[in-house]
């Protein structure tokens, strides 16, 4: 009898526990729900729609019309799109490559003992603080023919450069701002990575008589690998999305020389109201961003499994 009572109380307790677990699971679902809902409506549905619209002709006024692959076929033959693709590619490569060594070098500098280190680091960080639109405005002014930059270049004997007025210099001008903005941003990420390297490694290396360069190549770089990979991927993704600066500074000109892909998508959709073609371009951009994002997430979550 006592064992029956015992068994009964056991099942009751188990049911209670199962009930509790279910209740907790319900709570877990409930507090996750708003996030999932918003992300579904404003991220996933638009992405699916982007694919659908990319197969249709749609100008916001007439109902969308299915046209199959026509938008994509048109795109790969459209010199404007190919130009835009090319401009984006150049922007990505040249705005990203200098940032890697520069931000790492700055991080290493600030990982040393320096007087007023915090103040100096904050000063170097200031480009990140400036809002993107303000940055575009201020730099447009700096790039004026008789402006600040040409004056400074004049001190070292360089003739005035028609920065934003020439199709040869407009893209470099936009790239320069990208570098100015990104370098301190990634310096901070590199610094976090550097500070995670135990100081003992360097002390041991010094005892073994290793110099700075040797320590850098044999300790810093290998141990910084995850951070470096992350920075590489992040810089590329950010560069692929550049919009505000070319939009405000040049509007894509002169002669389409700064019409990066996001800017072209925007103009196709909201100035020429060709939603189908704009969506097809978005799909291109999506594939590019996705490839790098997958790499990024894999780097970032590798430590977990």
């Amino acid at each position: 009898m006592s064992s029956a009572v015992h068994a009964e109380s056991h099942t009751v307790r188990r049911r209670l526990r199962v009930g509790l677990a279910a209740k907790q699971a319900m709570f877990g679902y409930a507090i996750l729900f708003p996030t999932i809902a918003i992300l579904c409506i404003f991220r996933f549905v638009p992405m699916i729609q982007a694919f659908i619209i990319s197969f249709s002709k749609y100008d916001l006024i007439h109902p969308p019309q299915f046209v199959g692959l026509a938008n994509f076929v048109d795109l790969v033959q459209d010199p404007l799109f190919l130009n835009s693709f090319w401009v984006s590619l150049i922007y990505v490569v040249f705005s990203v490559l200098p940032v890697w060594p520069l931000s790492l070098a700055l991080a290493i500098l600030f990982n040393r003992r320096l007087v007023f280190k915090n103040v100096l680091r904050s000063a170097v960080f200031m480009p990140v603080v400036m809002p993107a639109v303000v940055m575009a405005v201020v730099w447009t002014f700096i790039y004026q023919q008789d402006g600040a930059l040409n004056t400074i270049l004049g001190w070292v004997g360089i003739d005035p450069i028609p920065w934003l007025r020439s199709s040869a210099f407009a893209l470099p001008a936009v790239i320069l701002i990208g570098i100015w903005r990104a370098t301190p941003y990634y310096m901070v990420i590199f610094l976090a990575g550097l500070q995670a390297i135990p100081a003992e490694y360097y002390e041991a290396a010094e005892i073994d008589g290793a110099g700075h360069w040797s320590s850098f190549w044999n300790i810093t770089l290998p141990l910084l690998r995850p951070t470096t990979l992350l920075v590489m991927v992040m810089t590329v993704i950010v560069a692929m999305k550049v919009f505000a600066v070319p939009m405000i500074m040049t509007g894509g000109g002169p002669a389409d020389s700064t019409r990066v892909l996001p800017l072209f998508i925007y103009q196709t959709a909201f100035e020429f109201f060709d939603m189908g073609r704009a969506s097809a371009m978005s799909v291109f951009l999506f594939v590019a961003v996705m490839l790098f994002s997958v790499a990024q997430i894999r780097i970032f979550t590798r430590g977990e499994e």
Partner: peptide, 10 residues
């Protein structure tokens, strides 16, 4: 992976 620059149209 779905930045605004990609999804702005839809």
């Amino acid at each position: 992976m779905l930045p605004l620059e990609v999804t702005m149209v839809p």
